[in-house]
Design a protein around this nucleic acid. Structure first.
Lengths: 195, 195
DNA sequence: TGTACATCAGTGAACGCGCGTTCACTGATGTAC
DNA sequence: TGTACATCAGTGAACGCGCGTTCACTGATGTAC
């Protein structure tokens, strides 16, 4: 965490510090705790300071979401790189997707909202588009059924996104050993996709 | 909407009136607008009145969710009844699921949260279990792959739930005519399930 | 190298908002006899 | 059928909370000359 050096008027990089504070709050306290005042406090600055760097809370959230898309994309790519068949890469990507959703739950919920919930922000939109491209291109290697490549992509996306949400709300609890213990690899095997 | 008759001390059925007010607020203003004070106002009663009927906002939300599960179950059943093959019934159920998600968006988001977000409430849990049973039993007619019936169920559930969320956040916009225009029936055709 | 000055990035007090909750109260309702 | 009384379900004022935002301010930084 970047805090302002004591007894120093200017911070140096308060914008960055506020984004990092926001990320930390998301990880430790969740989406509802993400407020301008909390970020300012965690960055060691007065609560009015963020005004000089962001257009209100939506602006800060948008900047944080930009980082979120980056982490999300990185985890998907990690999952893809371990595999060497088209179908394997899609499954690997899904594993990265689920890792992001479970290990960065609040961030996952921050980035998966309607674009209308964010102010227009080129950086964020570019980061979102980049992550989306990973999904699109990885699914493009698969054979396409009715509706073509975009339907294939949405089929994979729906399956993994839905599974992530079911985990989040505890309808599915992998490793629990009870009735909610369902493994994604088995779920994925229901998807009729081949190279 | 049930309002208190003017100049009358006791309401008659304020509990029911508050639930109906809550449902109306969800439909017209969304989940964030659902507060005790707003419900009280819409029911035509002072903001302190709900105290006598619910254990705070969580209690009221739980009661509203109970109704939500009922509507949800009814729409799924409607979708099922129109079909006469196991696979058709599952697809019909999904159509009902999606209808609920799109026509009752806030209610959909209210009921699909972690059980931990609600106080224990037998009525709500019974309503949730009943709706879940529709899903389970409809999917049970399908052939099961790796992981057995619960995996089959979660595969169907993930697909439809994910699709619903992608619509909600506008990654998918059926009927838009643009790149986001994907049809659920085509997505469903990727699911390798037979009678 | 020094100086004058504009700009920048903070501070801290204050404001208004809607929220849940508490409190003393009051009038209607239900019940015992 | 009346009456006394307990209980119930409201009212409205008040409180404290955290929030975003505004404001006058101030001290540090950067720049022109």
């Amino acid at each position: 965490m970047i805090r302002k050096p004591a007894n120093q008027q200017h911070h140096g990089n308060l914008r960055e510090a506020l984004i990092l504070a926001g990320l930390q709050i998301l990880e430790t306290e969740g989406l509802k705790a993400l407020t301008l005042r909390r970020c300012a406090k965690l960055a060691g600055v007065s609560h009015a300071a963020p005004t000089h760097h962001f257009e209100g809370l939506p602006g800060l959230k948008s900047a944080i979401a930009t980082r979120g898309y980056g982490i999300f994309e990185r985890l998907m790519i990690e999952g893809i790189e371990a595999e060497d068949t088209p179908r394997g890469r899609v499954l690997g990507m899904c594993r990265g997707y689920l890792r992001f959703a479970t290990e960065h739950r609040a961030l996952f919920n921050l980035i998966f909202v309607s674009p209308r919930d964010f102010p227009p922000d080129e950086e964020r939109m570019a980061a979102a588009a980049s992550a989306r491209r990973v999904l699109t291109q990885t699914c493009a290697e698969l054979r396409h059924g009715a509706g073509g490549s975009s339907t294939t992509e949405v089929a994979v996306w729906s399956l993994v996104h839905g599974f992530a949400k079911l985990i989040e709300i505890e309808r599915v609890v992998p490793g629990s050993g009870d009735a909610r213990d369902v493994d994604f690899d088995n779920v994925f095997s229901f998807l009729d996709v081949r190279a």
